[in-house]
């Protein structure tokens, strides 16, 4: 939606060479030669853009992507019943739940535990690549995507909670017991790392390219 022409007309704090303190709201100007500093009033760190945003987001994202592999390959839950011990990965759980009547549940697990984490990683990677390349296309969609990723991030933790609750509640020794398996740790790591990645991404970078003619910071 945003056009190059429109971008010309916008003015940003960075363009004005001003820092806005996120804590006390004081507007300040960076010291000559410096791009960052501290708020003279509340001592909050100031920067035009989040520090090393793209690099840090990439780092978190890569970690999340690495953890995503064992999260899906390792079992997340070990069920011990009288008939023996079963360790199931997330995908096995989806298959296990899939039945003529239980398919909605299966679908929820599939979406929440497999599709959303991977979608988050892909979305962030897309945002990072486009921001890095200074793309000026689809800015609004990209911001919407960012908001969605930010919003949805915390909900992926539900899976981890459900598993830990199940493990804590179902302890009917010796009949049946459920315990978390290593895959769960990686799954939690994926969720946390993607949340951190979202946190470290500065959405203002999406728009920076649009307000071109400016020296790119950060």
């Amino acid at each position: 939606m945003s056009t190059g022409a429109a971008a010309e007309t916008y003015s940003t704090a960075m363009r004005q060479g001003l820092h806005g303190c996120g804590v006390c709201g004081l507007i300040s100007r960076p010291a000559p030669g410096a791009e960052e500093g501290r708020c003279p009033r509340c001592d909050e760190e100031l920067a035009f853009r989040k520090r090393a945003s793209i690099q840090r987001t990439w780092a978190y994202l890569l970690s999340a992507a690495i953890c995503y592999v064992p999260a899906n390959l390792l079992p997340v839950l070990t069920t011990t019943t009288a008939t023996g011990t079963d360790s199931d990965t997330i995908l096995q759980g989806v298959v296990l739940l899939w039945s003529p009547t239980g398919w909605p549940l299966s679908l929820i697990v599939l979406v929440a535990s497999i599709m959303i984490p991977s979608a988050k990683i892909l979305a962030l990677a897309y945002l990072l690549v486009t921001a890095r390349r200074g793309s000026i296309k689809n800015n609004r969609q990209r911001v919407r995507l960012y908001r969605m990723v930010e919003f949805i991030g915390r909900w992926s933790m539900v899976d981890v909670f459900v598993d830990t609750f199940t493990a804590a509640l179902i302890q009917l020794q010796p009949l049946m017991s459920v315990s978390p398996a290593p895959g769960l740790l990686f799954f939690a790591a994926v969720v946390v790392l993607t949340m951190l990645a979202v946190e470290s991404f500065d959405p203002r970078l999406i728009w920076d390219a649009a307000s071109s003619g400016e020296q790119v910071h950060a």
Binding site: S28, A34, E36, G37, R38, P40, A52, Y60, S63, V69
Partner: peptide, 29 residues
């Protein structure tokens, strides 16, 4: 009425320490 912020000591390396995390993740993986 715009004050100048206080400068930070420029003691930053090119590579952010955050890269430690993917390295650890990769190692664990």
């Amino acid at each position: 009425g715009i004050v100048e912020s206080r400068g930070l000591p420029r003691s930053r390396t090119r590579l952010s320490l955050v890269w430690f995390i993917p390295i650890v993740a990769a190692l664990v993986g």
